[in-house]
């Protein structure tokens, strides 16, 4: 205890088959855990539902970006054509919502894409160069033939011993404590 104190990050259990990890995920979800994750070598259909993951709220960032872009377009065309340098072009009003609409439209698309892209970065906590699970000795095999379930210590239901026996009760093998 007199050396550098290491914090517990979480517990990792390994599973060998897709159904095993799928049903384990359902039980972890039903046990009320919130801060946990599953690592699989390939996408597993329905795993979101088994984990109790709700639909992403990322579209809201897209909507905000789109609305912001539309307003930016309106403001920009109004400022340029009607305020800063009023100029009659083709007998049209200085500013109307119609003639500069392509500008509004394009900026809506652009900002919606920005909202989605940067929203995804924020939601995923990117950029991120390291994650404690990389220290797990079997993490490489989770990219190949192993399924890992990680329950983080930050979860209010987490208890090193109880969660350990809970994971082994689910059929998890090679249960390892990860430190950070």
């Amino acid at each position: 205890m007199d050396t550098v104190e290491k914090k517990i990050f979480g517990l990792v259990a390994a599973f060998k088959t897709t159904p095993a990890v799928y049903h384990a995920a359902e039980k972890v979800r039903d046990a009320g855990f919130k801060k946990w994750d599953v690592f699989t070598p390939f996408p597993v259909h329905g795993l979101d539902h088994a984990m109790g993951v709700k639909r992403s709220t990322l579209p809201r960032m897209t909507l905000c970006g789109g609305l912001l872009g539309f307003m930016t377009g309106c403001l920009m065309t109004w400022y340029m054509n009607a305020y800063d340098y009023p100029l009659i072009v083709g007998g049209k009003p200085f500013w109307s919502p119609i003639f500069p609409f392509p500008v509004h439209y394009e900026l809506t698309i652009l900002f919606a894409a920005f909202g989605t892209f940067f929203g995804m970065f924020i939601y995923n906590g990117l950029p991120r160069h390291h994650h404690p699970i990389f220290d797990h000795p079997r993490f490489a095999s989770a990219m190949d033939d192993t399924f890992l379930v990680l329950i983080e210590a930050e979860d209010p239901h987490f208890d090193a011993e109880k969660t350990h026996s809970f994971l082994s009760g689910l059929g998890g093998q090679d249960i390892t404590l990860i430190e950070q």
Binding site: G90, G91, K92, I98, F99, F101, P102
Partner: peptide, 8 residues
């Protein structure tokens, strides 16, 4: 609409 409006 836009093309007709702009061409006038």
């Amino acid at each position: 609409y836009f093309l007709i409006y702009n061409a006038n």
